[in-house]
């Protein structure tokens, strides 16, 4: 465990908590893409199946359980409890365009052709693009609430920190995983445009609003 990874995990956790808290306190999931949340649920489920098969550390297991529970709780709040506030008219991204290629790529490019390994690979590929329905929703409505922006920012920071973690691990531990690195770079790049808007607008107290 190095500082980049720890801060990355904290940022990831913070993002999930910000989102859950926002939905719970406002009793509304307006502006949030349920499709992105479903994809993240699928990402955590397929990746953390190894909770049963391999033990890494208490930290690792606890975090996995927390991510799974928080993800399912978010989906429950969006699709059951506060379903009436879900803005599905603006959440129109076709997720099969992400899921099908992620499955195909996981079958083609993986470390080992075994069920758990392919599910892990699928989760890595899918995570890299899972935020697209949310970014699409923001671009469609042309704006995002500040709290939604904070959520997206924390999620982007998490991936950025993981990149630093991989650079560190490459020279300090001689450890690298090309699948995770390439997918992680793609994922971080997807947030770049948003980072720019976040820094130039949200941090200056303005609402994130795209030019018409």
């Amino acid at each position: 465990m190095n500082i980049f990874r720890l801060l990355g995990d904290i940022s990831h956790l913070l993002a999930i908590i910000i989102l859950l808290r926002k939905i719970w306190m406002s009793r509304s999931c307006a502006g949030i893409s349920g499709k992105s949340q479903l994809l993240f649920g699928l990402v955590y489920t397929t990746r953390y199946l190894d909770l049963i098969t391999s033990y890494i550390s208490l930290y690792n297991s606890v975090m996995k359980v927390v991510f799974l529970a928080a993800s399912y709780a978010t989906i429950y709040l969006m699709y059951v409890k506060f379903k009436a506030t879900y803005d599905h008219n603006h959440d129109t991204f076709r997720i099969e365009f992400l899921v099908v290629p992620a499955v195909a790529l996981a079958l083609l490019i993986n470390h080992d052709f075994q069920v758990v390994e392919i599910l892990w690979t699928f989760s890595i590929y899918l995570e890299s693009v899972a935020i697209l329905p949310q970014l699409f929703m923001v671009s469609k409505t042309g704006e995002a609430e500040s709290i939604t922006s904070h959520y997206l920012f924390a999620l982007g920071v998490y991936r950025g920190l993981y990149l630093l973690n991989w650079i560190y691990r490459f020279w300090a531990e001689d450890h690298y995983d090309l699948i995770a690195i390439v997918a992680g770079v793609v994922q971080t790049v997807l947030y770049c445009d948003f980072f720019y808007l976040y820094i130039t607008k949200v941090l200056r107290g303005k609402k994130l609003q795209l030019p018409a």
């Binding site: 190894d50 890494i56 690792n60 690298y176 995983d177």
Partner: peptide
Amino acid sequence: ASSKGIHDEL
């Protein structure tokens, strides 16, 4: 070396 198959991250 590439540490493929070792998934110790979240």
